[in-house]
């Protein structure tokens, strides 16, 4: 038999960490765990007319998934979302890396001016940002139409949000404007790792600016680029607020992306089985993209 005191100590030592985790875990289970399980269940059920009059939902297996992915509307939404995501992520990365390079090349004062401008764009809440851009692109009084007219193009009363493509263009500009600062600051921090001596040596050895970028800078900032790029893809796939608010201005065309489509299905028309099936799809795609990011974080952490 153990002496009572020693036993108590070992037991307390083992229990404490789990007790500390309880509140957080309970919150996550209530707000995310239960909905997730409900969603998995609902995605295999049929909520039809009979269910609206109180009949219990009917188990249909994977029928909702099959129905969702044999439906051309769903495919349209998925493909538009993927294209939108990739275009936005690539543009954000290119402009962000360019701005980081530029910040690295200019003097202190100019760099500070650039950093302040980027920070202000970054700090602006998304709803305020979309509101501002809708005003900038306003078809009658928007300053963008005015400036384009001044440059000699005919943009009098041009309605940017009148077509799907125009709506995506405006959404892209908003997303890129908001996301570039994070990329620029992260890559700039990575660029400062590149030692001036190495660059000088490469310069003396006759390496041109392009060569120095591809052979020295790029390999050194690759880890940062990978993480930031992955995050951009994950974030741009879930874009919701921008699209939703731009749709508020214009009579909705067929402009839904994944997030707004699920919202319309679930909250709009109460089609919970289809909305759940697509939500599960969104979650699976996100997790697939997150694996690389999470493993990288864990690796760097240990």
């Amino acid at each position: 038999m153990f002496p009572p005191q020693a036993r108590q100590v070992t037991r307390r030592f083992k229990k404490t960490p789990y007790l500390l985790l309880v509140p957080a875990v309970v919150m996550l289970l209530i707000a995310m765990g239960y909905p997730l399980i409900w969603q998995l269940w609902a995605s295999t059920m049929k909520f039809g007319l009979a269910q609206q009059f109180g009949a219990p939902p009917e188990f249909v297996g994977l029928a909702n998934y099959i129905a969702a992915f044999t439906n051309p509307t769903t495919w349209g939404v998925v493909i538009r979302s993927l294209v939108f995501c990739l275009v936005n992520a690539i543009l954000t990365m290119l402009i962000g890396v360019g701005l980081a390079q530029l910040m690295n090349a200019v003097g202190k004062t100019i760099r500070l001016v650039m950093q302040i401008a980027l920070l202000l764009a970054w700090a602006t809440p998304v709803v305020a940002a979309v509101t501002i851009w809708i005003w900038l692109f306003d078809w009658r009084r928007g300053v963008i139409n005015y400036l384009l007219n001044g440059l000699g193009f005919d943009f009098v009363n041009h309605n940017w949000l009148g077509t799907n493509l125009g709506l995506y263009l405006v959404a892209t500009i908003i997303v890129v404007w908001m996301s570039v600062p994070f990329v620029a600051f992260s890559v700039f921090a990575g660029l400062t790792q590149v030692s001036g001596e190495v660059m000088e040596a490469a310069n003396l050895d006759g390496a041109g600016a392009v060569r120095r970028f591809t052979a020295i800078i790029l390999p050194m900032i690759k880890p940062v680029l990978m993480i930031v790029g992955l995050l951009q893809i994950i974030w741009d796939l879930r874009v919701f607020t921008q699209i939703r608010m731009l749709q508020d201005v214009q009579m909705p065309l067929d402009s839904d992306l994944l997030g707004t489509y699920v919202y319309r299905l679930g909250v709009g028309s109460g089609d919970f089985s289809m909305a759940s099936a697509l939500s599960i799809f969104i979650l699976l795609v996100t997790i697939a993209f997150s694996i690389g990011y999470v493993l990288q974080i864990v690796k760097e952490d240990s």
Partner: peptide, 26 residues
């Protein structure tokens, strides 16, 4: 401990759009 950390990192990446219909229903 390690599984908890992994779970936290993954949960953090989950988009609101992937759960909001179920949360609405709840």
């Amino acid at each position: 401990r390690k599984s908890f950390i992994l779970a936290i990192l993954f949960i953090q990446m989950l988009p609101a759009e992937g759960l909001f219909i179920a949360q609405y229903k709840m």
